[in-house]
C-alpha cells in the first residue's frame, strides 16, 4: 500500500466509526466503507500480492470498533483473497462489477468475522438479514465508487474547462 492511500483509508475508517454513532439509523453501520479499498485493489491493480493491506484494514477496524483485535484481520484478508481470485475470472470492470464485488466483500467479511469470533466465546450473533443488509449496502457503496470511476470526473472537468477557455 502506498503512503498516499493511508489518509483516505483512515478517513474511511473514521467514517465507519462515525456511522455507528448513537442517533444515526440502525442500518447506517451496515455498509462496510473500507471494503471499497479491497474491491479497488482487486479490480484496478494488475498485481495480485498477498492482501497485507486488507489485513491491516481489518486489524484497524478491530481496533476501532471490536472488543478484540485479530478476527477482523482474518475476515478482511479472506475477503481480499476471494476478491483477487474472483477478479481473475471476471473481466467486467464496470460499476456493476464494483457493486457485485462490494456485495461479495461485505458478505464474506461478515461471515468470516463471525466464524473467527465464534471460538472466542464472545457471543457473536449473525442472521441472514444482517448478512444481506451488509452485502446490499456495501455493494451499493462500492457501486457508487465504481460509478464515479466510470464517469472519470477529472477528465470531464478538464474537458469542460478546455471548452470554456475556447
Amino acid at each position: 500500500m502506498h503512503a498516499r492511500w493511508i489518509l483516505p483509508v483512515l478517513l474511511t475508517l473514521a467514517a465507519q466509526r462515525l456511522l455507528g454513532l448513537p442517533g444515526l439509523p440502525a442500518w447506517a453501520a451496515d455498509p462496510l466503507l473500507p471494503a471499497v479499498w479491497i474491491v479497488a485493489a482487486a479490480l484496478r491493480s494488475r498485481e495480485r500480492p498477498w492482501p497485507l493491506a486488507a489485513l491491516l484494514i481489518g486489524l484497524a477496524l478491530d481496533i476501532v470498533q471490536e472488543p478484540v483485535v485479530g478476527p477482523g484481520g482474518i475476515a478482511w484478508s479472506a475477503a481480499a483473497l476471494a476478491l483477487n481470485g474472483l477478479a481473475g475470472v471476471v473481466a467486467d470492470r464496470s460499476a456493476k462489477a464494483w457493486a457485485g464485488f462490494g456485495a461479495t466483500a461485505g458478505a464474506l467479511v461478515t461471515l468470516v468475522h463471525h466464524l473467527a469470533v465464534l471460538p472466542l466465546g464472545l457471543g457473536s450473533s449473525l442472521s441472514a438479514a444482517q448478512v444481506l443488509r451488509t452485502a446490499v449496502f456495501t455493494g451499493a457503496w462500492c457501486g457508487l465508487v465504481g460509478l464515479v470511476f466510470a464517469l472519470d470526473l477529472p477528465q470531464r472537468w478538464r474537458t469542460l474547462r478546455a471548452r470554456r477557455l475556447r
Partner: peptide, 18 residues
C-alpha cells in the same frame, strides 16, 4: 500456508485478549 499461518496467529492473538 502463509495465509493460514497468519490467520492462526491472528486468532491466537484474539484469544489472548479474551
Amino acid at each position: 500456508l502463509r495465509t493460514l499461518l497468519v490467520w492462526a496467529a491472528l486468532e491466537t492473538a484474539a484469544a489472548w485478549q479474551v
